[in-house]
């Protein structure tokens, strides 16, 4: 089991390196899937099969498929990969990498103080424990998650609309302001017209 943990951990790190260093988006997505599968394996070795299953189904399955869909929809082609290669000069990545390395070293030095003193034996953590906790005292978390997903759904469907850029819907500008008692100055429509070239800023 220990060997499986270290091997899959190594695989996860390598695959992640592949994600951040790869110029081709499709390859990047595939590397990410590998990385996520490796992390799922780590979960299994640690004794959390329910989390591992969720990792494969939700992360590697659903979310990554979403990425693949988007990449295919945009259909970036070879030119985009060339552009990526141009952007991946050492002088772009050396600074951030050093910074991240410093952060990592700090984290490790904080972890490596020998004060945790716990060993993961691989005892099973089943879905039952999580379920009773989630639908018992932590019920609020379910509500929170539901609300989060709903908000994401609304936001995504609003932001993702492909409104024609040149001609935004007139209804967005001509909404009544609510000041029915104050007569609208006659220059109001004219101002609306003049802003229509910039109207693409309105989603």
């Amino acid at each position: 089991m220990e060997l499986a943990f270290y091997l899959s951990g190594l695989a996860a790190v390598l695959a992640t390196l592949g994600v951040i260093a790869n110029p081709n988006p499709v390859h990047g997505v595939l590397y990410l899937v590998v990385s996520l599968l490796a992390v799922a394996l780590v979960f299994f070795t640690l004794g959390a099969p329910f989390a591992g299953a969720l990792e494969i189904i939700v992360y590697a399955g659903a979310i990554m498929v979403l990425f693949v869909f988007v990449v295919m929809m945009l259909n970036l082609g070879q030119a985009a990969a060339e552009q990526e290669r141009l952007w991946l000069q050492p002088r772009t990545w050396i600074g951030p990498s050093l910074l991240a390395a410093v952060l990592l070293l700090t984290l490790i030095s904080l972890l490596w103080r020998d004060d945790i003193q716990r060993v993961i034996e691989g005892g099973e953590l089943t879905a039952k424990g999580a379920g009773t906790l989630l639908y018992g005292p932590w019920l609020l978390l379910v509500e929170l998650g539901a609300l989060l997903l709903l908000a994401a759904l609304v936001t995504a469907s609003h932001v993702g609309r492909t409104v024609p850029v040149a001609a935004p819907k007139p209804a967005a500008r001509d909404m009544p302001t609510g000041d029915a008692d104050q007569p609208q100055p006659p220059q109001q429509p004219a101002r609306g017209e003049s802003s229509s070239p910039a109207g693409k800023e309105v989603l």
Binding site: M1, I20, A101, V119, I120
Partner: peptide, 17 residues
């Protein structure tokens, strides 16, 4: 068994990447 630090270091590494 795996020491807990190792698991956390793996998490930190992935996070830093």
């Amino acid at each position: 068994g795996v020491p807990m630090e190792h698991g956390l270091v793996l998490a930190a590494t992935l996070f830093a990447l």
